[in-house]
Nucleic acid binder design. Structure first.
Ligand SMILES: [Mn+2]
Ligand SMILES: [Mn+2]
Ligand SMILES: [Zn+2]
Ligand SMILES: [Zn+2]
Lengths: 146, 146
DNA sequence: ATCTTATTTAAGATTTATTCTTATTTAAGA
DNA sequence: TCTTAAATAAGAATAAATCTTAAATAAGAT
């Protein structure tokens, strides 16, 4: 029941971070939430019982939980775009260090069968793979700077 | 050589859209560009020969080219985030109509071998699949409204 | 239980990407 | 060349996220 809260308490302690009432309420809402809530969703829900909460605190807390692996984060709805004159069907590799983006092709990927729930979900218009990691160049740099 | 420009000219005509000097220069830069340029990158490059170009025109033109399938678009670098208390390794299905997001699991995906260029790219920290399309509910709605 | 202090917070300003508004310009057909 | 609907420039508006700073507070020390 409250073992998730016990975990939060322990992780805060391990990181030398204060467990404030704000963090507790934000955590309560995010673990209760379905459907990938936005920061504002969480803000509005916490505000019901805590009218003075500031949205900045919601941002900070959620990002802290994320950095501890307690929650995950998706960037699908954003408007910030980069363009690409490559219109061939392709996938991307993203270096989280230098933020460079590479194209790659993977025809074999299309030959594995999708899970049943996906096939029944609706009309599929595209299926893309995103690789995240640290590129060779950035790895080299962090080696030499050690 | 300039068959890409001929294509642009024809597509503009087919869509009843004026081929302005601005569109031509923006197109020239995007097909020349490597590494997924941002709108501002293109803006700065076009500005060299066209100092009065406005960034709004760059936005409009690139989105027009995108809607015609002449270029593609990625949304990887954005900060606009949604959170998820589901920390199990999972993938997403996104309905482009209602913008709802579903989780799905696909263990078999991890068993196919990645292309050599990916394995040699660097340290892979995660590999995710994104399915885009129209969900069953939205399909039903568009049926009944017809 | 009280004191102390480094963290955390609230509030509002700032930043940044994108879109909107409006007066002016222009491509392209007549 | 004329006409006009569409496109543009310039700058305002919007929205998500981050930053700044003074005040509040969690948690260890006394
Ligand atoms: Mn690409
Ligand atoms: Mn998810
Ligand atoms: Zn890198
Ligand atoms: Zn839908």
């Amino acid at each position: 029941m409250d073992n998730k809260f016990e975990l939060l308490k322990e992780i805060c302690k391990n990181h030398g971070v204060k467990l404030t009432y704000q963090k507790l309420e934000i955590f309560r809402e995010i673990i209760k939430a379905k459907n990938h809530p936005s920061v504002e969703d969480i803000y509005n829900r916490v505000k019901v019982n805590m009218p003075t909460i500031s949205i900045d605190t919601v941002y900070r807390s959620l990002n802290t939980f994320y950095s501890w692996g307690l929650i995950s984060k998706v960037h699908i709805f954003c408007d910030k775009a980069r363009f690409d004159s490559n219109t061939r069907l392709h996938h991307h590799m993203l270096c989280t260090e230098c933020e460079k983006l590479w194209d790659f092709y993977w025809p074999e990927f299309y030959s594995i069968e999708l899970p049943a729930e996906v096939k029944e979900w609706g009309n599929i218009e595209g299926q893309f793979v995103e690789i995240r990691g640290i590129c060779r160049e950035c790895l080299k740099e962090s080696e030499t700077s050690r």
